[in-house]
Design a protein around this nucleic acid. Structure first.
Length: 323
DNA sequence: CGACTTTGACCTGCGC
DNA sequence: GCGCAGGTCAAAGTCG
């Protein structure tokens, strides 16, 4: 929503200079969703690609859409003037229309209720029976397990697993009395005190501070990709060139693992993929250890911007916490 | 005194 | 059904 507002403001300013109405042809829609689903879309990947190709040609004839149904799935950054991101929208829409075994998509009713009037909405995930919540693991380089990710957490337990001598701490979000979000923090290795694995589970039921919103957006994006069925790392890396990216399913928990301890990715190695025009990357930095503060930052990448307002927009949002 | 942490007990899912 | 292990509860302790 923040990015959307910035885009809108800059676009309106640009339109004023050009003497046009900024509301006429700008329609940026950002949707994030964190829930759970089965992963059966990948089997239909080829079919979906065909559908995408067919519909893109049809849609180009129709021109830009001013209004469209809320049929997105998972993470979606739409610039309706951008044919590349239109492809992503078609992927979501057609996957829904085809109802790929109707296992990983929310119902139309869900989208109706999730979308508000000004087209800026965070779609809530709807849990389905038989599959546990999607988890997002973030391996972050830091010497303090209490990474400030913008949320307020209350520790409710600690356990030492038999298979792992390192204790695991359990936290729940204390910003709201009924917030279901929980996280687990565990040191990555016995001889590795410089990195912690944080596992997030659930959706916040309350407004988040902007720092936490960025974090939630990043993790939600990763989880949503998992839901779309892009289960292979190579496929996911096309969407999100993270430092290191892996997907696993343990105990029926679909899990996306983001490894921030890996070196920064090389922009020159970005795959030549249409969707790279709207992607996210993760980066992290640890301040001098004496300060006991750590920062997780999420930066959006933009390449080949066909939309002139992007050229002036810094997509880098920074999530920082000080203790 | 309220919020948070600690920690042993308890609950629950899963494999055998 | 049983036992194990992960996850959660809740009372007691700690801290500001």
């Amino acid at each position: 929503m923040h990015v959307s507002n910035v885009i809108r403001q800059q676009h309106e300013a640009s339109m004023k200079l050009d003497g046009n109405n900024g509301h006429e042809d700008l329609d940026v829609d950002i949707s994030l969703r964190l829930g759970r689903s089965e992963q059966k879309i990948s089997k239909k990947e080829e079919e979906v690609k065909k559908i995408i190709a067919e519909n893109i040609s049809i849609e180009k004839k129709k021109g830009s859409e001013k209004k469209r149904s809320a049929s997105g799935l998972g993470f979606r950054i739409q610039n309706f003037e951008d044919p590349n991101t239109m492809k992503l929208d078609y992927l979501f829409r057609e996957v829904k229309n085809k109802d790929v075994e109707n296992t990983c998509l929310s119902s139309r009713k869900d989208f109706k209720t999730a979308r508000n009037e000004d087209h800026h909405e965070v779609l809530e995930g709807h849990e389905q029976p038989g599959l546990k919540k999607t988890r997002v693991c973030v391996k972050a380089p830091c010497d303090d397990p209490s990474i400030n990710d913008g949320c307020q957490w209350r520790k409710y337990g600690q356990k030492t697993a038999k298979t792992n001598p390192l204790p695991r701490s359990y936290y729940r979000c204390s910003m709201s009395s009924n917030c279901p979000v929980r996280k687990q923090v565990q040191r990555c290795g016995e001889d590795d005190t410089s990195a912690y694995m944080t596992t997030y589970e659930g959706n916040h039921d309350h407004p988040l501070p902007i720092e936490a919103t960025h974090m939630a957006a990043g993790t939600s994006a990763a989880a949503s990709l998992l839901q779309t069925g892009s289960s292979s790392s190579s496929s996911l890396s096309h969407f999100f060139p993270f430092h290191h990216f892996s997907v696993s399913t343990t105990n029926s928990h679909p899990t996306v693992t983001l490894d921030l301890t890996q070196p920064n990715y090389d922009p020159n190695q970005l795959p030549n993929y249409p969707l790279s025009s709207s992607s996210l990357s993760f980066s992290s930095s640890a301040r001098p250890s004496s300060s006991k503060s750590h920062t997780l930052s999420f930066s959006g990448l933009k390449s080949q911007a066909p939309f002139n307002t992007y050229s002036n927009l810094s997509h880098k949002t920074r999530l920082s916490g000080q203790q």
